Simulated scan of single mutants.
Amino acid sequence: MARAVAPGPQPTGDVHRHHFILNTDGRSHPLQNTGAVLTAVFGLVAAICAFLPSMHLLGSWTGLAGLFTGAWSQMISATTAERWVNICGVVLSGLGLLFGLAHGGLY
Results as ranks from 00 to 15, higher is better:
residue 15 V to Q: 06
residue 16 H to W: 15
residue 16 H to E: 12
residue 17 R to I: 10
residue 18 H to K: 12
residue 18 H to P: 07
residue 19 H to C: 04
residue 19 H to N: 03
residue 20 F to Y: 14
residue 20 F to P: 05
residue 20 F to W: 10
residue 21 I to N: 02
residue 22 L to V: 04
residue 23 N to Q: 13
residue 23 N to M: 00
residue 24 T to M: 05
residue 24 T to A: 03
residue 26 G to V: 07
residue 26 G to E: 12
residue 26 G to N: 12
residue 28 S to Y: 09
residue 28 S to E: 11
residue 29 H to Y: 08
residue 29 H to D: 04
residue 29 H to V: 03
residue 31 L to S: 10
residue 33 N to G: 06
residue 34 T to R: 09
residue 34 T to P: 02
residue 34 T to Y: 04
residue 35 G to E: 03
residue 36 A to S: 09
residue 37 V to D: 01
residue 37 V to Q: 05
residue 38 L to A: 13
residue 39 T to P: 00
residue 39 T to R: 02
residue 40 A to Y: 04
residue 41 V to W: 03
residue 41 V to E: 02
residue 42 F to R: 07
residue 42 F to A: 07
residue 42 F to P: 02
residue 43 G to P: 08
residue 43 G to Q: 06
residue 43 G to F: 12
residue 43 G to N: 11
residue 44 L to D: 07
residue 44 L to N: 12
residue 45 V to Q: 01
residue 46 A to L: 12
residue 46 A to K: 14
residue 46 A to Q: 14
residue 46 A to P: 11
residue 47 A to V: 15
residue 47 A to D: 10
residue 47 A to F: 14
residue 47 A to K: 07
residue 49 C to I: 02
residue 49 C to A: 15
residue 49 C to Y: 02
residue 50 A to Y: 00
residue 50 A to S: 14
residue 51 F to V: 00
residue 51 F to T: 02
residue 52 L to P: 00
residue 54 S to K: 03
residue 55 M to R: 02
residue 57 L to V: 12
residue 57 L to T: 08
residue 58 L to P: 00
residue 58 L to F: 00
residue 59 G to C: 01
residue 60 S to H: 03
residue 60 S to L: 09
residue 61 W to R: 09
residue 61 W to E: 06
residue 61 W to L: 10
residue 61 W to Y: 14
residue 63 G to N: 06
residue 64 L to Y: 03
residue 65 A to S: 13
residue 65 A to K: 01
residue 65 A to I: 13
residue 66 G to L: 06
residue 67 L to G: 12
residue 67 L to I: 15
residue 68 F to I: 14
residue 69 T to E: 01
residue 69 T to C: 11
residue 71 A to S: 15
residue 72 W to T: 13
residue 73 S to R: 03
residue 74 Q to H: 15
residue 74 Q to F: 15
residue 74 Q to A: 15
residue 74 Q to M: 15
residue 75 M to W: 05
residue 76 I to S: 05
residue 78 A to P: 00
residue 78 A to Y: 04
residue 78 A to S: 13
residue 78 A to C: 13
residue 79 T to H: 02
residue 80 T to M: 11
residue 80 T to W: 04
residue 82 E to C: 09
residue 83 R to E: 06
residue 84 W to C: 09
residue 84 W to R: 06
residue 84 W to N: 09
residue 85 V to N: 06
residue 85 V to R: 08
residue 86 N to Y: 10
residue 86 N to I: 07
residue 86 N to T: 13
residue 86 N to E: 08
residue 87 I to W: 15
residue 87 I to N: 08
residue 87 I to D: 07
residue 89 G to P: 09
residue 89 G to V: 12
residue 91 V to A: 14
residue 91 V to F: 15
residue 91 V to H: 10
residue 92 L to D: 05
residue 92 L to F: 11
residue 93 S to V: 09
residue 93 S to A: 15
residue 94 G to C: 10
residue 94 G to Y: 05
residue 94 G to F: 12
residue 95 L to I: 09
residue 95 L to S: 01
residue 95 L to V: 10
residue 97 L to W: 07
